[in-house]
Computed example of a mutant assay.
Amino acid sequence: MKALIISWAGGEALRSLTQDRSILLLPVANRSLLEHQVALLTGCGIRELFVVAKRGAEEELGPILDSWEDLSYRFFTPVADNLPVVLDPATLVVLLGPLITDLDLARALAFHRERGAKATLILHAVRQHPRCSLVLTDGRGRVTRVLPRVPAGGEMARTAGGLYILEADLLPYLTEMLVAGKEEEICPRLLAAGIPVYGFPVDEYWLQLEDPAAYLQVHRDTLHGRTRLKPEGTELSPGIWCGRGVKLASGVRLEPPVILGDGVELKEGVRVAESVLGAGTYVDVGTEVLGSVLQDNCYLGKGVQARGIIMGEGTIVAGGAVLRPGILLAPQSVISRDSLLGGAFNHFSCLGD
């Protein structure tokens, strides 16, 4: 059994957080997205992995994959004629884009085999969504029809996207659509060719990290135990996870749930609530960080107020700045003293002197 991760698809609205690096390096609860996805795949016995990523990604992602024993992997660039050709018969799990899920993949694979399916779509519940198609199935789960849009009305419906189980001989047939992220074309093409396609309904946690709001949401869900993701660090007290070498000055207030990465330093009077702070982050006297996600090596000066924001790696925020909900700061951003920023996920990189 093998797996194919196509990192090229999806997550465009979060590209500023990874800049020119792979989206698979995006940290979620202080672990990379790739670590979470590989944990899902290896948990059901997958030991051979293909990764489609930009040229040079192997240098960034290879060391992460090397931490898994008995896992072999190969990298391919996102070119339609460059996907792996699986010569021997195999079942292939295909994972597209920045997906976080608690899916019981072993059950889905058993369903695929029991039905004798050539392709199984993992069907998750959605409300009306402009890019989602409604997938209809019969009593055994065989897909009978695909409607182009989930109908309006607010009721939940089943749609496919993000994860597929395919027999390997279908891969050349679907290569162009997979690489281009044209998921809406996959099922109609298979049905038109008379290929048996089944849908496996999933009720476990499922979230595509397609925009900043979803990125904040997955952290809130992880902090509150609504996913099975494991926060980085040791749970020192209920809802407080700390990495190695964390330094807490007197008067620091940690209001759970909170995740502090390795080497985080919080000075006197700092308040942190329902937030994730990446490794090496420094927070100066009297600053408040509420409902936010800070990536590695951020610096917040004295008296900063940060609420409901996303802060990229290496960001510097000078003292007295007020950062209101809906801000995404790109990595290496510099925000000047006493700045006032806010909005519906406005993107900033530099403000002030």
Rank of each mutant, 00 (worst) to 15 (best):
W68F: 14
Y73N: 01
T42A: 08
D211H: 13
G312N: 01
N82Y: 04
R15K: 15
V51Q: 00
T159R: 02
S7Q: 04
T144K: 09
L178A: 04
R189Y: 11
L33W: 09
C242H: 06
W8Q: 09
I240H: 00
E59K: 15
G269N: 06
C350D: 12
L40D: 00
A344M: 07
S292F: 10
L207F: 10
T42I: 08
D138Y: 12
A279M: 06
R324Y: 14
E114L: 15
L209A: 05
A3D: 00
T159K: 01
Q128P: 14
L109K: 07
V285R: 07
L294H: 01
A117N: 02
V218W: 06
F75R: 02
D20A: 08
V94D: 03
L248S: 03
V218R: 00
G286D: 04
R244Q: 14
S16E: 15
H124I: 03
A193Q: 09
R220I: 10
I46C: 10
V272A: 12
W8I: 05
T144G: 09
Y73P: 00
E12P: 05
Q19M: 13
A321V: 10
V246G: 06
D138I: 12
Y73F: 15
S349I: 05
G153S: 05
I46R: 00
T159I: 02
P89D: 14
L103S: 01
F50S: 15
S7Y: 05
A3K: 03
I309K: 03
L83E: 03
Q305L: 14
Q295Y: 11
S333T: 11
I195L: 11
Q332S: 14
L34S: 02
M156E: 01
E268H: 13
R271T: 15
D138M: 12
P231K: 08
L170E: 00
L351I: 15
T18C: 13
P196E: 02
L25A: 04
G161L: 01
T227M: 11
C44H: 10
S16G: 11
